[in-house]
């Protein structure tokens, strides 16, 4: 069984974490679309810290010996999911940066090309220009 101290401490940690996440979202430091897994994780923490019976039930279900193990397993799984999620976000960002960089390079090349063509047209006499094109 849990001592009262443990109970209060676990709840306090969960509430503070949830509060920090929500505050980050409110200040737009954390975008809503990336906050999904974090909110789920902290809500899960809160539920588990309030409802100790659920932890005991999960422990029996998974075959773990102590409830601590259950908590660690769930913590690890959530962290794993979050980092995989980050990798997918990173891949998308990489693709977008590549597209943008290429687009910029193409546009600047086109601009330079147009400029040199215009310069040639003004400096070279018209007869030679017609021959060249």
């Amino acid at each position: 069984m849990m001592t009262a101290n443990q109970h209060v401490f676990a709840m306090a940690v969960s509430v503070v974490t949830l509060g920090v996440i929500l505050e980050l979202i409110r200040r737009r430091k954390l975008r809503e679309e990336y906050s999904f897994l974090w909110v789920i994780t902290t809500l899960g923490m809160l539920v588990l810290s309030i409802w100790y019976g659920l932890v005991e039930w999960l422990t029996r279900l998974s075959g773990a010996v102590t409830p601590t193990t259950t908590l660690f397993i769930f913590g690890l799984v959530f962290l794993l999911l979050i980092s995989v999620h980050f990798s997918t976000v990173l891949s998308r960002l990489t693709e977008q940066v590549r597209r943008l960089t290429q687009e910029l390079a193409i546009l600047s090349a086109e601009r330079d090309d147009a400029r040199t063509r215009a310069e040639n047209r003004t400096s070279v006499d018209p007869g030679r220009e017609r021959e060249a094109s």
């Binding site: 940066v97 960089t101 290429q102 390079a105 600047s108 090309d113």
Partner: peptide, 22 residues
């Protein structure tokens, strides 16, 4: 030559692809 400049280094394949798109 006409020059297309990547402001950052993207890699050999990306540079080729810029050429294809151009």
């Amino acid at each position: 030559a006409i020059v297309a400049t990547h402001p950052v280094n993207l890699g050999y394949g990306a540079a080729l692809q810029t050429g294809y798109r151009y």
